[in-house]
């Protein structure tokens, strides 16, 4: 399979990148690890005439316990024991992404911004043409929930839930300068599978900041998929928290990905648990409530009824395993 011709840009600074983005407005994609973008390009999904490769921008690379450059390779992060000890849910998630070969190229930024997925979108041009295309590429209707306005493609990154429960923030550079927002704010909770990010045209994800206040939380990321390799999440549940010596919750975060067009947190459900001891019943009740809110649709391999049911099980398990302090 070949790629259609495009112009390749290889900026060497954030400023140069943002400048390019401005001049190429709407006619480019950033190229990070390429493990998601290039298959999509090979399938002629939303091609742009310019690619801006980010691997030569030094500020985007490298990581510490406080900061993950957007171009940090997942394979490098996975091999850092200090990072794993400090951020156990993240460590779980890193190991669960696709395959070691994908992780060799795949990046933090790429995983956070990964294109949403759907059986009717992640197909060749030929395949999609045969159905008359869809909202998300070249068409004007949805084959999952037939209508003409909302895309149900599923957010399929593993890192987002794990970083959300670490209260991560993202640093964004754009034409008007830099801004730093909570990771929750990156995902447009009011959007859909197409309008899914709050990034403005030309903005660049520079880094993820891991706040020291959340470091060392016990945590867990559990991923539902058919096989223990290759697959995107059919559901991803992350939990992180602290417990006092009496087993009372001091702080607790929960996030769910892989089930809807964007990952999300459930602070309104977890906050009331602070100061309480969790037991099986409380964990189960939380799981049921989260499951009630999460609404997967039939656009991945496993049926949505099952994925919804598993939300409750995964939440309960992730809570219990995080509290046990299961080693990352």
């Amino acid at each position: 399979m070949h790629l259609d011709p495009f112009e390749l840009h290889r900026p060497t600074s954030v400023e140069e990148t943002v400048g390019l983005a401005r001049s190429l407005a709407g006619r480019f994609d950033y190229l990070a690890g390429g493990t998601d973008l290039l298959p999509n390009y090979k399938m002629h999904l939303n091609l742009r005439p310019h690619l801006v490769a980010l691997e030569a921008v030094p500020e985007l690379t490298g990581h510490s316990l406080e900061r993950l450059g957007a171009m940090s390779r997942l394979a490098d992060l996975e091999r850092d024991p200090a990072l794993a000890a400090a951020w156990p849910a993240l460590a779980d998630a890193l190991r669960e992404v696709a395959t070691p070969l994908v992780r060799a190229s795949g990046t933090v930024g790429g995983n956070l911004l990964v294109e949403t997925r759907c059986f009717f979108f992640n197909q060749s041009y030929f395949w999609r043409a045969s159905l008359g295309f869809c909202l998300k590429a070249d068409g004007d209707r949805c084959h999952v929930v037939p209508q003409k306005t909302t895309c149900y493609a599923t957010f399929s990154g593993d890192l987002a839930p794990a970083l959300l429960v670490g209260d991560a923030e993202v640093e964004i550079a754009g034409p008007t300068g830099r801004r730093r927002i909570p990771l929750t704010g990156l995902y447009d909770a009011g959007g859909d599978g197409i309008r899914r990010l709050t990034l403005q045209p030309g903005e660049l994800l520079v880094a993820v900041h891991l706040p020291p206040r959340a470091r060392g939380r016990r945590g867990r990321y559990l991923k539902l998929r058919v096989r223990p390799a290759y697959d995107f999440p059919e559901l991803g549940v992350a939990v992180a928290g602290r417990w006092d010596g009496d087993g009372r919750v001091q702080e607790l975060r929960l996030a769910v990905g892989g089930a809807e067009p964007h990952p999300r947190t459930f602070d309104d459900l977890t906050a009331p648990l602070e100061g309480q001891r969790l037991n099986d019943a409380r964990r189960a009740a939380l799981g049921e409530e989260v499951a009630r809110r999460v609404r997967p649709v039939h656009n991945t391999f496993l049926v949505p009824e099952y994925r919804k049911k598993m939300v409750a099980v995964f939440v309960r398990r992730a809570l219990a395993q995080a509290e046990e302090g299961r080693a990352a």
């Binding site: 058919v226 096989r227 391999f301």
Partner: peptide, 27 residues
Amino acid sequence: MGESMNYRASRMLNPSLLEYKIPAPQQ
């Protein structure tokens, strides 16, 4: 355990090695 050519009517939904679920080494 998971291999299946899935169809909607007679259109194959998963003509790829990513969505056609051959067991992994760990299985």
